[in-house]
Write a protein that binds this DNA or RNA. Structure first.
Lengths: 340, 340
DNA sequence: CTGAAAGCGCTTACAG
DNA sequence: CTGAAAGCGCTTACAG
């Protein structure tokens, strides 16, 4: 039924070995033979079977992408597809394929990781999640399976990872708000389970210190990182009688909610309160007011992540690599106070 | 190095065939033998190699998901990941894996489709894109490769597909706007390349006709389906001196832009102009004003899409199946005119 | 209930 | 420059 290397061999009057070598463009096969073989392949509409090839070569050219916590809204965040695009782009160039698995709970995660690492289908894993204390990480290290984390993990010197410098991101944004005249700056959406929010908070504190602004813990509001609770977080603050002059939300989606809440209380953005987000979602520039944010270059995060993974797969000498992707502060109306 | 079925066979003093059968839980193997074999597998930490299994069984349990037009913003739309979640959910239950490919241009698409269909890795294809006149479709039909399209294709009776009833969606939304007192209703974002927008427009026209409202072509504005041009489309209309009492945008993201434009011109939503979108993105409920939209149940689109594909792969007798996923009209403030 | 053997479609030392 | 043979790690008729 399906034409195999043996069919081609017969038709070309050569051995299967020779066909295989022609396919691999081995220098040991004469040009003439190659030409003949390729012509026949064309005629007979031959395509190599990658499964058979994988078995023989003991290499599948497939990596797995693991998306954690898909029951939460995280997976719906615009930067996830963007990361995936980056991964796909470099993977394609390197003739790698991408197996994607989304995981809801820890139990499922254990099963899927086990499957992906033991069944021989996948050569390495790209993990999209910077959850603190993920038990998968020590497991992967133990079995020495190549993997890269997108997002800074807690044990940053013992794994491969790629991320932005989120401390710097938090710092820059806070400094920006200080520069436009804010002193009491709220920080919304810290989630202890996500390094990224902790890092951004760290940068926030650094900037305050550097500018001799006393830290007010009341201005820091915990919450889910990516969720529709920006409104609630802001409300919590206002209900306590606190009206900050600036607000930094850990994600644009949170910032949108916060702005809505401020508006309802009759507070104008940016005149009364300057508001900024992070991650620069597509809508941010079209929001009212256009939202100051940080472009994290999600595409590059994915692209670089794949590169690191490929390195880890191919490299003889094991090492732990990291990559820091640059970001851009994007100032828009939502933080443009008069006089600044 | 890696433990194989032969290692287990030796350790258990049986033949590889028996181990294989135990693995498949064949009734032809005694309970006692199975127990012994499983115990040894446990001890030796054995996992079957799915590549070898795939080759022997001639079946990989892998499907491909093809995402078209990833250079456009489409891929970043929140409903794509949601569809993927639906696919993954059912695939997981059926022990299928998902290979994902995103495609930018037609040239790349041809290569990837060719690869996915000929290399033997993938048993069927799920195509995310309802682009009109996609050359891939006739090709897949010709080679009789199982596939399902998410989105109604032009040749709807000759392929498997799953979609909402977009005519009905357009109709219901328009009727809703008419009910709240709108008569001159603009329709933004028709893109002839996407069936979904054409269908929604069709429903719009049906509703007008049914209510004896004359069709005004000037109110229909073409544009990219999913893009940040809602502002521009609305502006185009207003610049022509047209101020509709209602606006339907082909996507929530477009509606956000349209609202912004209206606001800048001093028009209030919904008091002066009622505005509605489609697809119910996460932000819609938190927008100011909360946006009337339609929940298309993207998760179900993906889940059902996989079911159809699995059917197509397994079924002896070939047929063309379709599935229509229900939707929900979600009325929010943006269309709540006074008195309605 | 179990085994020996052939086969899935390739690749690759080994030999010439 | 080319081929015969073994092997990748499974499954599955065939035979008993």
């Amino acid at each position: 039924m399906r034409v195999t290397i043996n069919d081609i061999a017969k038709a070309a009057n050569v051995s299967p070995s020779t066909v295989s070598r022609a396919l691999a463009d081995s220098p040991r096969i004469s040009k003439a033979t190659k030409r003949k073989i390729f012509k026949i392949m064309e005629e007979m509409n031959y395509y190599p079977n990658v499964i058979a090839r994988s078995l023989a070569r003991k290499s599948t050219n497939i990596i797995g992408v693991l998306v954690m916590g898909t029951t939460e809204k995280a997976f719906q965040h615009p930067f996830f597809p963007e990361i995936l695009r980056g991964v796909a782009s470099v993977a394609y160039k390197n003739e790698y394929k991408i197996l994607i698995s989304s995981v809801t709970d820890m139990d499922e995660q254990r099963k899927i990781v086990n499957d992906l690492t033991q069944s021989g289908i996948t050569e390495g894993l790209l993990i999209l999640s910077s959850g603190v204390n993920d038990p998968t990480i020590p497991y992967l290290k133990e079995i020495q399976f190549p993997f890269v984390i997108v997002g800074r993990p807690d044990n940053e010197n013992e794994v491969n990872w790629v991320d932005n410098d989120n401390v710097s991101i938090g710092y820059q944004m806070t400094r920006h708000l200080i520069e436009v005249g804010c002193t009491d700056i709220a920080f919304l959406g810290v989630d202890k389970k996500f390094m990224v929010t902790l890092d951004r908070l760290k940068g926030y504190k650094m900037a305050l210190k550097e500018n001799n602004i006393p830290l007010n813990e009341d201005l820091i509001v915990e919450g889910k990182f990516v969720d529709d609770t920006g409104y609630d977080l802001m409300k919590k603050l206002l209900d306590r009688g606190i009206v900050p002059s600036g607000v930094i939300a850990c994600d644009d989606l949170l910032a949108f909610g916060a702005i809505k809440c401020l508006n309802e209380k009759g507070l104008r953005v940016p005149e009364d309160v300057a508001v900024a987000g992070f991650n620069n979602v597509p809508l941010s520039s079209y929001f009212t007011p256009p939202l100051t944010s940080v472009d994290i270059n999600a595409f590059s995060l994915g692209a670089k992540g794949f590169e690191l993974l490929l390195n880890s797969i191919k490299s003889e000498v094991k090492s732990f690599n990291r990559a820091i992707i640059p970001f851009q502060l994007i100032v828009r109306e939502s933080t443009m106070k008069k006089g600044s």
